[in-house]
């Protein structure tokens, strides 16, 4: 019995070793034994396996290859500071030259990222940010306000005669979606042909979004456009429109262009998508990191643009380029 269990423990250790070896082989971006000339970069995703971050990863790897740098990519299973912190700490311990990170919480990630800086590692914040972004050499993010403006422009094109427009938000207090909602509101108020009905919050629940939209259509049957600032809000809004029998009259503009959102566009659940440019964020992130490592001046804040995708442009080269990738 004792011998058997000892054997199993030994096998376990071997498996762990093997996985470690395989993993470092299969991961093309491994920095194990990285060249002394190239910089070693690390990218800590907000969450592993998400199209937005994968697209960003693609941009990072592409640009890193150009710059002669190597990249390791790590992310936690969920968008969660309690899971991201140990990942970040392990990455810091592996002593990369620079870390590109999408912080999962403006407060919780502040100290762990400050620790990285204290170890002499250059920090670039990608997409999300911190309460005090000064620990980073540069913070690159989507211009969410411009994204909201783009959403309104999409509605202008889809409903050129104007009318009433509604925002369906996630919940108040999220910096990115708040900025989108505000950008949309400001643009809508600026156009006299349109009436802005305000923003209501779905709490990320499609059923709630549906009841918001069907109630809004009861009150204002002539709504022409809805800006739903994330996927669930968009899905729920489309359901609410169907409940009210207003398909074709009301245009839904969604945000982001992952595989699910593209599918929603293809099957007519939404009429337009505002795609951010995560690949571009990644490219610029690497550029800023390398600049900092070379001692050149950094841009503290960079904002990237967004692209409108509609059913007409979805299969065009531009549309395909704007859609997020599931793998590089």
């Amino acid at each position: 019995m004792k011998r058997k269990s000892t054997v199993i423990v030994a096998v376990l250790a071997a498996v762990a070793l093997g996985a470690a070896a395989c993993g470092s082989d299969s991961d093309g971006g491994s920095n194990a034994g990285g060249g002394s000339d190239g910089y070693e970069l690390a990218f800590v995703q907000g969450v592993a396996g998400d199209a937005f971050y994968i697209t960003m990863e693609c941009g990072i790897k592409e640009e890193a290859a150009k710059q002669g740098a190597t990249v390791t990519v790590q992310g936690a299973q969920k968008f969660d500071p309690t899971l991201q912190t140990p990942v970040l700490q392990s990455v810091i311990a592996s002593k990369p030259d620079a870390i590109l990170i999408a912080p999962t919480d403006v407060a919780a990630m502040q100290q762990p990222i400050a620790q990285a800086k204290a170890q002499g590692i250059k920090i670039v914040l990608v997409d999300t940010t911190l309460n005090d972004p000064s620990v980073a050499v540069s913070a690159i993010s989507s211009d969410n306000s411009a994204g909201g403006k783009a959403a309104f422009e999409a509605i202008q094109k889809l409903a050129p005669n104007g009318g009433k427009v509604l925002g369906v938000g996630v919940q108040p207090g999220i910096s990115t979606t708040d900025a989108r909602d505000k950008g949309f509101a400001d643009a809508a108020k600026a156009d006299s042909k349109f009436t802005y009905l305000g923003v209501q919050y779905s709490q990320n629940d499609p059923a709630k979004a549906a009841s918001i939209v069907s109630a809004a259509l009861q009150k204002d049957p002539d709504i022409v456009g809805i800006f739903a600032s994330n996927l669930f809000s968009a899905q729920g809004s489309a359901t609410g429109i169907r409940q009210a029998g207003k398909q074709g009259q009301v245009n839904v503009v969604g945000f982001d262009a992952g595989p699910e959102q593209i599918k929603a566009l293809q099957d007519g659940t939404v009429q337009a998508l505002i795609a951010q440019q995560p690949g571009d964020i990644g490219v610029q992130g690497v550029q800023q990191a390398v600049k900092a490592l070379k001692g050149e001046a950094n841009e503290a804040n960079i904002q990237t643009g967004s692209t409108i995708i509609t059913k007409d442009t979805i299969d065009s080269p531009e549309g395909k380029a704007a859609a997020y990738k599931a793998s590089c």
Partner: peptide, 28 residues
């Protein structure tokens, strides 16, 4: 997890190994 990250193993493999260790240890 810490070691795998430093060696550069993909995140998803880490979960697989941790799961396997759990089951194997309890089985023994």
């Amino acid at each position: 997890q810490n070691g795998f990250i430093q060696v550069g193993v993909q995140p998803f493999w880490q979960q697989v190994v941790v799961g396997a260790v759990l089951v194997a240890v309890v089985y023994v």
